[in-house]
Design a protein around this nucleic acid. Structure first.
Ligand SMILES: [Mn+2]
Ligand SMILES: [Mn+2]
Ligand SMILES: [Mn+2]
Ligand SMILES: [Mn+2]
Lengths: 219, 219
DNA sequence: ATATATTTTTAAGTGAACTTAAATATTAAA
DNA sequence: TTTAATATTTAAGTTCACTTAAAAATATAT
């Protein structure tokens, strides 16, 4: 294939399915920051190429081939992120957009060597699982959005959405980092914001922010 | 800028100037493996953007701005090559084409970190000098093509053209590697081929091959 | 159920980087 | 110096990934 644009569509569709369930052209358009018309256009191409199943006005679904390709791209992305963060020590909030470009410019051979060099990491710096060469994801405990928790629930931060660097900067400033334990002190009915306690600090997070932070519940 | 194609034109023009002296559209076309018409097209754009000085049917020259940009791209290219070879241990003959893509997909910040991680290398794995952040090239002894030497001349291999992986594979197989010392045993008037002695081995190289191997003469 | 709003698709058009074929300049040879 | 060969440019057309505006389908609200 080797086509930046198509590759990003496939990753986006794959990721949106996990998050949003049913995938509609509009969501893809928003996600990729392009017009809905462009999405329709591309869906037709991806469909003729056998990467998605697409009937107009009906749903969008990756084919087995499309899914394989998407996972493959996600693998590249996350391995690059890990390299940039762990090895080059680039800032947490910059690695995503950098990897967004590198993923399209590196051969499988290169990425496999990178994986080896990084010693087969299982999660990227934002907590997302890294698919292996065969496309299998590492086993991990189920994560849920922090916004789903209720008062007095305890958990550990496992993942933070990486698509907006502003969120990452903000999260870091609030002391939210992967592996951090916390307790939900309160949740406001009014606007859905949550107050959590991290160590001795209390931090208040808007509903939108809380829904972009994923955690593992304490049993 | 951020435009793969334009970036490759600029590097090509810069490198061709060193090798070929006067730069003509045809040479660029050959080098980039595109039609001469495409070159004319692009030269107009690069000219309006102030990267080259170009009057039709007259010569082509990089402006100061164009030269800065070209050196900048070459820096990225050579640092990536060094990383791929030294750190990831990718094969010598594959790193060039890989770097050819990566150079367009990495920010300055990333490349600066890469340089730091590599501990400020001065030459890439094929022996080309790596420009520093300011665009200055490291000091180095003058290199000349092996094809220019005469019988009994002695030298050290300092650089091997990287644009054709076949040449690199062949060179390696013949025992030609950077830093290798040799003596010219003979040079045939007939076809310009040279016979050199490396350690105890005698190797015969065609004129074309010899002209792609650069050496430092022994004083 | 009908009207209204929203989503999706179609239509038409753009800019970038190419192509091939034809026209025009330049350079080299007779 | 006229002719022939070669190099370069122009012209016209293609593909890709977009755009905006309008049309059509679907979803929602009264
Ligand atoms: Mn990411
Ligand atoms: Mn991308
Ligand atoms: Mn190279
Ligand atoms: Mn390149």
């Amino acid at each position: 294939m080797k086509n930046i644009s198509k590759e990003d569509y496939l990753s986006a569709i794959y990721k949106l399915r996990d998050e949003a369930g049913e995938i509609k052209p509009n969501i893809i358009a928003e996600n990729l920051e392009i017009s809905p018309a462009a999405v329709t256009d591309m869906l037709k191409k991806l469909s003729t190429d056998g990467f998605v199943q697409y009937k107009k006005y009906k749903g969008i679904k990756l084919t087995a081939k499309g899914e394989r390709y998407a996972v493959h791209m996600i693998r590249k992305h996350r391995l690059w992120e890990t390299f940039l963060f762990e090895v080059l020590k680039m800032p947490w909030e910059k690695i995503h957009s950098e990897a967004e470009k590198l993923e399209h410019s590196s051969s499988d051979e290169l990425v496999d060597k990178l994986e080896e060099y990084l010693n087969y990491p299982k999660f990227d710096p934002h907590g997302y699982p890294i698919p292996d060469k065969n496309g299998s994801l590492p086993k991990h405990k189920p994560v849920i959005a922090l916004s789903e928790l209720r008062k007095n629930d305890k958990g550990t931060i496992a993942r933070i959405s990486d698509f907006k660097s502003e969120l990452l900067v903000y999260a870091a400033k609030q002391g939210l980092s992967l592996g951090q334990k916390f307790t939900v002190k309160d949740k406001l009915d009014f606007d859905g914001s949550v107050i959590i306690k991290i160590n001795t600090n209390e931090v208040s997070l808007s509903k939108k922010i809380a829904s972009n932070i994923f955690i593992v519940m304490e049993e």
